[in-house]
């Protein structure tokens, strides 16, 4: 199709090029209103207050509360991205050795799809139900005598929230990384063996270098995923606002201070900037990794 886009348009003709463009107008109109305008609103409104340009909103980000939240958000996202990537990567390899259309692979990819994409509030509930005061796992831990005395840890960003975030990060890693692992050809391993290499040589010299860009790329993706997550954190943490998305939500709902909405937009812009930086690195890496892997 890309070879000769113009050939054969005769039979489809009868409409001038301008007419052909009219066919995509609804799509572009819709995405302009509901996607592009909102994005522009965030970018522009971050620099506007009371109708004129200002850096006040961005400067307001300098307050301690936001910087702490930003730092905690970045630490949480980085930690869950790295742990999630390592565990999810090992899981992806394990699953890739199973039969391609077997029930195990289908089961795991479906389960991971649910946990990674559709969970939200329910995932927080799952952990409250299991690790909360009357939870099944807390009861087990109490019986074994290893559990912490209170369940307060569950609602702290660097303990409970981190654990719940892993609950969707590991599955996401599997979904993102599985295609890369499946791109490893058995022939490469056989070639290594023929040349006298051991399993270790294969991993060290062949598989790891090939998978490394995809692995780092997937890790970055996990980072932005955790960084943008809101629902799970909101359902788990109700007292404070330790993370950026929660702070944005706070400015959104509080109508006590006028102009808070614009600070919220500046926070949103800060999020977009972080995500954009990470995604740029990701795009660059993805170009490199697709050299070897036919997807």
């Amino acid at each position: 199709m890309a070879k000769s886009p113009r050939s054969g348009t005769r039979a489809l003709g009868g409409i001038k090029p301008s007419g052909a463009l009219a066919g995509v107008v609804p799509f572009f109109a819709y995405t302009t209103v509901f996607l592009l305008i909102p994005t522009l609103v965030v970018i522009i409104a971050a620099f506007v207050s009371d109708g004129h340009l200002t850096l006040g909103n961005v400067r307001a980000l300098g307050n301690a509360g936001f910087l702490t939240a930003l730092k905690q958000s970045i630490i949480l996202s980085a930690l869950t991205a790295i742990i999630g990537a390592v565990v999810g990567g090992i899981l992806a390899y394990a699953v890739s050795t199973a039969r391609p259309d077997g029930i195990l692979k289908r089961f795991i990819t479906s389960l991971c799809g649910v946990l990674a994409q559709f969970g939200g509030v329910a995932l927080a509930f799952a952990f409250i139900a299991s690790f909360g005061a009357q939870g099944m796992i807390s009861a087990w831990m109490k019986k074994a005598g290893v559990g912490p005395s209170s369940t307060l840890w569950l609602y702290q960003w660097d303990k409970g929230v981190l654990l719940v975030y892993l609950y969707f990060q590991i599955p996401l890693m599997l979904i993102v990384f599985l295609p890369a692992v499946e791109g490893l050809r058995p022939q490469w391993r056989e070639a290594t063996e023929t040349l006298g290499g051991t399993t270790w040589t294969y991993w060290r010299r062949v598989a790891m270098p090939i998978l490394f860009p995809s692995f780092v790329g997937a890790t970055l993706l996990l980072f932005t995923n955790a960084f943008s997550a809101y629902a799970t954190a909101a359902a788990l943490v109700s007292q404070a606002q330790p993370l950026v998305p929660l702070q944005i939500a706070g400015t959104f709902t509080s109508e006590t201070v006028l102009g808070q909405a614009n600070v919220g937009k500046a926070m949103a812009l800060a999020m977009v900037v972080v995500v954009a930086i990470v995604m740029t690195i990701y795009a660059w890496l993805d170009k490199r990794s697709s050299k070897w892997l036919v997807r």
């Binding site: 199709m1 890309a2 886009p5 348009t9 489809l12 409409i15 052909a20 463009l21 066919g23 995509v24 799509f27 572009f28 995405t31 509901f34 996607l35 305008i37 909102p38 994005t39 522009l40 609103v41 965030v42 932005t224 960084f227 943008s228 809101y230 998305p245 944005i248 939500a249 959104f252 909405a261 919220g264 937009k265 949103a268 999020m271 977009v272 995500v275 954009a276 995604m279």
Partner: peptide, 30 residues
């Protein structure tokens, strides 16, 4: 069928929501 040159643009727009956090979208959609 008619505008193969635009396929990249349409793809880009369709995949864009993955990079815009939902919470940011809410702020802009207000």
């Amino acid at each position: 069928l008619r505008l193969p040159g635009m396929s990249r643009l349409v793809e880009f727009i369709c995949l864009l929501p993955l990079t815009v956090p939902a919470i940011v979208l809410v702020v802009g959609l207000a």
